[in-house]
Simulated scan of single mutants.
Amino acid sequence: MKRIGLIGGVSPEATILYYRHLNAAARKKHGGQHSANVLYYMLDYGVMIDHYHHHAWPDFIAEVVRGAEALKAGGAEALAITSGTTHVGAAAAAERTGLPLIHMHDSLTRAMQAQNIQQPLLTGTPWVMSGDFFKPELAQRYHGNIITPSAHDRDMIGRIIFDELVEGVVTPASRADMASMVGHHQQQGADAVILGCTELCMILEQADCDIPVLDATAIHAADIAQILLGD
């Protein structure tokens, strides 16, 4: 069993979801009232979202690296990041600390390969969907045709994430908008939807869609739990 250090806080709502998944895995394996023995370094969401909106990626990555270094000093033997966008700092964190990092893109790739997904729709923060990191990095691992929503839909998803989900707000209207958007892309050939922002599982689930929903939070957390619990 490894002591896992998790970099969280971007946003706190998503970090809570990871902790619930890991505790559920610990109880499933050990029974009783066992919980996940992990280390957390919580980034300040207010600082991180300011860097995000100003495209201050060196500063954003520096915060992630500081978190990784603190976790190593605290005894972490491996790292994980509880945010899709924040994986932009994953390589730098692993390089600076020398610790293995349980990467969301590896988890998603295995899940898509297992289901023979050929043309997934990538959703997430606007930067995840259209920036120069998340999609290209995932494409290096996965050789299907990753598609992204239109600019209008990217704006809609971004509004839902930043104005609602990170505040813990989930509305029926936004759920319907997300499901309708996925249905439209299904008609255009999408055979799955990737929830590449870790808050999106709060508003979209398999029952809302007719194509597979790849919940990055649950998929990634399951891989973290395997290493944490020694499976």
Rank of each mutant, 00 (worst) to 15 (best):
R96T: 08
V193D: 03
N116H: 13
D106W: 00
Q119N: 07
R159Y: 13
Q115H: 06
A91P: 07
A111Y: 00
P149E: 03
I117S: 01
R141N: 11
S107E: 02
D132E: 15
V193Y: 01
A93P: 01
T85D: 10
C197D: 06
V88Q: 11
T109D: 09
H87D: 09
P136E: 07
A94K: 09
R110Q: 10
A151K: 12
H103Q: 04
G124I: 09
D106I: 05
E199Q: 12
H143Y: 07
V169F: 07
W127T: 14
S150N: 10
H105I: 14
S130G: 14
D153Q: 14
P149K: 02
A94C: 04
L101S: 03
A192R: 04
I102G: 02
E167T: 08
F162V: 15
M181N: 07
F134E: 10
D191Y: 03
Q188E: 13
Q186H: 00
R110A: 11
H103R: 03
I160M: 14
W127A: 13
R96L: 07
G84S: 10
T148Y: 04
A190G: 09
A93Q: 04
S107A: 14
A139H: 04
D106N: 13
D106L: 05
A93T: 05
Q119F: 02
V166N: 09
T198L: 09
A90P: 06
L121D: 02
A91Q: 15
S130Q: 14
A94E: 13
L195K: 04
P100S: 02
H105R: 11
P126F: 12
N116T: 05
D155H: 12
M181K: 04
V128T: 15
C197L: 07
T125A: 13
G158W: 04
T123K: 05
A179C: 00
M104W: 02
Q118I: 01
R96A: 14
R141C: 09
G183R: 10
M112Y: 01
D155I: 13
A190I: 03
D153Y: 01
R96M: 06
N145F: 00
T123R: 04
A192P: 05
H103N: 08
A139C: 11
R141A: 08
R159D: 15
T85A: 13
P172E: 12
M104E: 09
P126Q: 15
R175Q: 14
E95A: 15
T109R: 08
L108E: 02
I147A: 07
M178S: 06
S83V: 01
D163Q: 15
Q188S: 13
D132R: 12
A92T: 07
F133L: 10
E167R: 10
I147M: 11
T198H: 08
K135S: 13
N116C: 06
Q186P: 00
V166D: 09
